[in-house]
Each structure stands twice: as C-alpha cells, then as structure tokens.
Amino acid sequence: MDDEIPAGQPAPKPKASDNPDKPRSNRHGRRLQRIREEIERNRTEGPAIPTWVLALTLVLIIAVMTALVVYS
C-alpha cells in the first residue's frame, strides 16, 4: 500500500488544513469557517415560512398577472 509508513519513521504531523473543525488563520480559512457555520445553521433551523405558503403566493401572483394580461 502507498499510505504505509516505513518502519522506524515517525508519523507525519497533520496539517492545519486537514482539520475541518479548526479554521485556518488566513482570510480564506475564516471565510470557509463562516460558510460551514451558515450551512450548519440552515440545516438545524427550519424554514421561516412554510414551503406551501411560498408556493401558494407564487401561484396567486402568476394568476393575477395572467388575469391582467388577458382582461386588459
């Protein structure tokens, strides 16, 4: 196997970029950490408005616009 370490050799130390829980100290790492936190928040919190309400609103808007075009 390619991943095996030869006998007598110390194991390589993991890089900071290998740990997704610890953000890197540069700007790119901080941005990635903010993105991860936002994704986690979105997964744990439910939507503020139920999907069926949004769908019904869209259908009503389309119906009103169609009625304006047809009857004007």
Rank of each mutant, 00 (worst) to 15 (best):
A63V: 14
V69C: 15
K22Y: 03
A55M: 14
R31L: 04
G8F: 01
L58N: 15
N42Q: 12
N26I: 06
T44M: 14
T57C: 15
E40L: 10
A16P: 02
P12Y: 04
L68H: 12
K13I: 07
L32Y: 04
L32R: 02
M1S: 11
P50S: 09
Y71E: 09
E38M: 12
E40T: 12
Q9W: 04
I39T: 07
A48Y: 08
S72F: 15
Y71H: 05
A7N: 11
R30Q: 08
N42I: 08
N19L: 01
R43Q: 09
P14N: 10
N19G: 03
V53D: 03
E37I: 04
M65L: 13
A67N: 09
L54C: 10
I35V: 12
E40G: 11
N42V: 11
S72H: 15
L54G: 09
P6G: 01
L32D: 00
T51L: 13
P20D: 01
A7I: 09
I61V: 14
V59K: 09
D3F: 10
H28T: 06
D18I: 05
H28R: 10
D21V: 06
A7E: 06
I61N: 08
Q9N: 04
T66D: 12
R34V: 04
S25C: 09
A16C: 08
R43N: 06
E37R: 01
E40V: 14
V59E: 08
R31P: 00
N19C: 03
D18R: 03
R34S: 07
P12N: 04
I5Y: 01
I49Q: 05
D21H: 10
V59D: 07
I61E: 06
L56F: 15
P6Y: 01
L54M: 11
K13C: 06
Q33W: 12
V59I: 15
P10F: 06
V70S: 08
P6T: 03
V59G: 06
P20A: 00
Y71I: 09
V70Y: 10
A48W: 11
D3R: 07
I49K: 05
V70D: 05
